[in-house]
Design a protein around this nucleic acid. Sequence first.
DNA 1: GGCTGATAGATGACATGTCAACGACCTGCT
DNA 2: AGCAGGTCGTTGACATGTCATCTATCAGCC
Lengths: 152, 152
Amino acid sequence: MDDVRWLNDREFRAWIGYRRMRGLLDLRIARDLADDSGLSEPDYDVLSNLGEAEGHRARLNDLAARMLWSRSRLSHHITRMQARGLVVKEDCPDDGRGAFVVLTEKGWGTIEEAAPAHVESVRRHFIDLLTEDEITTLGDITARVLAHLTNS
Amino acid sequence: MDDVRWLNDREFRAWIGYRRMRGLLDLRIARDLADDSGLSEPDYDVLSNLGEAEGHRARLNDLAARMLWSRSRLSHHITRMQARGLVVKEDCPDDGRGAFVVLTEKGWGTIEEAAPAHVESVRRHFIDLLTEDEITTLGDITARVLAHLTNS
DNA sequence: GGCTGATAGATGACATGTCAACGACCTGCT
DNA sequence: AGCAGGTCGTTGACATGTCATCTATCAGCC
């Protein structure tokens, strides 16, 4: 059964590096964000997506699709964010099953305040450590992997 | 306050790409692994690290340091893995505070069985999608970011 | 109208990981 | 010997996310 194509050294280095970097990088950026604004990364993503949405509102399902989240995950998360006053749910007049999530004043203010420090944190711990070529390559890699994962 | 260095298009593409890829890729590989072997990714990492350790055993603290995990995380996880019979804890004779984790027969068998399909999954969804140059670049990127995160 | 199947969202049980706090033990200094 | 401070591992409370399942509603078709 030794037709297994084990990873060679370079492949192993890239894969394990990715795994380890992911753990530390996300933890670090999540901590910066939480200390600075009280938001978690998922909170930030939701607020940021809603902030870009028409009227600061979106259907739950559309939002989940845009963020590549499961409906369940978004539903749980929106429930928690609503309890904190960052967003509100509203019934959808066109579709009795549906619901909108809407950014509140507080939610909008929170993301506006959080954004600069968050971007700074992302730069400091990640983006500014890479060359222009590496950034381009990383963009290519992630786009290709995402295309593979969403079409299969 | 507009001295904020927002991300430009290429930087944004790389950062958001990374975030999105991470979510889908890890979910996909975790599902493959769970379906195939009943292990989670953290389970696999622990077993795999123990498998490479001298005598299939390690001090909790050393293992945590090697894996870049918090002691708390490892402690919780080992407790759960012990309940499933994958590892055992043993007292450390040299240091009354310490403890060893040791791979069981079952744990060793499980990782041996799981590895080929896991590597195959990692190849299919990630490594085999990249060129050699991209793999090298990714290794460089992750090494640099990790060095930054662990020395600061 | 009334069925059938798909879709939107909510929910409960469970696994995971964080942080903060704790007890136990070791080490070095006095 | 005895104390002070650090280290090892554990624990409890909590946040997050998964999966499976459920209800309500919609859409197409008879």
